[in-house]
Write a protein that binds this DNA or RNA. Structure first.
Length: 421
RNA sequence: GCGACUGUAGCUCAGUUGGUUAGAGCGCCGGUUUGUGGUACCGGAGGUCGCGGGUUCAAGCCCCGUCAGUCGCCCCA
């Protein structure tokens, strides 16, 4: 029989890889609570319409990257390719506007049928944060501050730079994108093949073309700053002032855009050079038009998403989880007392393990490899004397402790370090 | 979806111009006197050389296909 194989672009993780992944999520949960973001859970699959409507039928993600299927009832479903649409759907469906402004956070798997590459998977995972029902630039500042704080806590802030732009309000956006489209249309023949296609699908995307031939035309393209309405300009200024006050460094990238027209005002990405072509580690912006566009009440919102795998690759190797104490029992009479002690330790909040295979020597070997700081030996002699033997696995010192005081003694040792305590 | 490169034990790799039973290090398992780990020494298990065809007297080495990964494009977290 042929050995089974995981689907392309998926991953199996254990040990260090899983520890890194876990570390990113734990850090996110810690930081997001500090910033007052509550947890939101939404389904891993939704009606296809949820994403088709929110992302736009013509988007690559919708038109060729979604995992779509018909369920047994004949309904068109798809695995979520992103978080925002599902959260927006839930906001509308459940009337969460009553609780606005709402600060929400989520993480979990997302699916996109793409060609895998380093930092790009078919089942990948994101951290996601959104503020729904807040149109103030202060909300954008909070979003970015959360992202920046998270990256700092992960220790990757130095590898990453925040790039920022504004798409302005609808009037700004409409006038500017028309001017950009007109500019590129006038030079259509000089554009790269990819950019000619973009001109029809999504002209603003030409601005971040990697094609060197396009660069000259891009440099001459209309600047959004010349199209800001008063309101849009003020919004951007207040955002910048907020970042300044928050001590957050950033770089202006006037070419950073979002194609869909419900995006308004701020657009930002945290970028790294360390991951090759997939350098965006966190990306977001304000999408004031989305919820209204999906049939809900007009609701301003901002958010970002970050790739867990990409962050995990940047993070320095996190310490592997280790137990603190290894219980080593020898002989049948020691089994009961060892189990009682093991459970007692765990309930007292001490990470403990018991090796259940091999002779004493093997068990000690296991204890050493487990990374435990202390070993507790229990054999016939100890049971007869009503004690246990504590061994410091670093120094090798051993000391007898009464069975009744074992847990207290162990905790003291762990806290104080060393057996002398 | 397009182009290129790669694919040998659990991991990292070596394998000479195609030539007898495919190697190393690490890891794993066992041993070096009967209740004591981390070092050292000894031994062992583990590979149909990604998979399927083809060329050849003979293929891990050559050719084709396929699957997977990597790099770039595209897209995006």
């Amino acid at each position: 029989m042929k050995a089974p194989q995981k689907p392309r672009g998926t991953q199996d993780m254990i040990g260090e890889a899983a520890a890194r992944f876990d570390h990113v999520i734990e850090t996110f949960n810690r930081v997001r609570k500090l910033h007052g973001f509550g947890r939101v859970e939404v389904p891993v699959f939704e009606s296809t319409a949820v994403f088709a409507r929110s992302l736009g039928e013509t988007t690559d993600v919708v038109s060729k990257e979604m995992y779509e299927f018909q369920d047994r009832g004949g309904d068109a479903m798809c695995l979520r390719p992103e978080f925002t649409a599902g959260i927006a759907r839930a906001y509308i469906e459940n009337g969460w506007q009553q609780m606005a402004p709402l600060k929400l956070a989520a993480w979990g798997p997302l699916f996109r049928y793409e060609r895998p590459q380093k930092g790009r998977f078919r089942q990948f995972h994101q951290l996601d944060a959104e503020i729904l029902g807040a149109g103030e630039p202060a909300a954008d500042v909070e979003m970015i501050a959360l992202g920046q704080h998270l990256l700092a806590e992960l220790g990757v802030a130095d590898d990453v730079v925040l790039t920022l732009n504004s798409m302005g309000d609808p009037d700004t956006r409409a006038a500017w994108s028309a001017a950009v489209a007109a500019h590129f249309t006038a030079h259509r023949g000089d554009l790269s093949e990819d950019s000619q296609r973009r001109l029809d699908a999504n002209p603003l995307r030409i601005l971040d073309s990697k094609d060197v031939g396009d660069q000259a035309l891009v440099a001459d393209a209309p600047q959004i700053d010349n199209y800001f309405t008063n309101e849009a300009g003020q919004f951007f200024e207040r955002l910048q002032a907020g970042l300044q006050a928050s001590g957050i460094a950033w770089t202006r990238n006037a070419r950073l855009v979002r194609g869909l027209d419900y995006y308004r005002h701020s657009v930002f990405e945290f970028i790294t050079q360390s991951l090759g072509a997939q350098g965006t580690v966190m990306g977001g912006g304000r999408y004031d038009g989305l919820i209204g566009h999906m049939g809900g009440p007009e609701t301003p919102a901002v958010g970002w998403a970050a790739g867990i795998e990409r962050l995990a690759m940047l993070v320095a190797e996190p310490a592997q989880p280790r137990v603190a104490v290894a219980v080593v029992a020898v002989g049948p009479e020691a089994e009961g007392p060892a189990l009682a002690l093991l459970n007692g330790l765990r309930r007292a909040g001490v990470a403990a393990e018991q090796g259940w295979r091999g002779n004493l020597k093997k068990k000690m070997e296991r204890a050493g490899k487990s990374g435990a700081r202390l070993a507790v030996l229990i054999g016939a002699d100890e049971v007869a004397a009503g004690i246990v033997t504590l061994r410091d696995l670093g120094s090798g010192e051993q000391v007898p402790v009464g069975m009744g005081e074992a847990i207290t003694a162990i905790r003291a040792r762990l806290a104080g370090g060393g057996l002398k305590g």
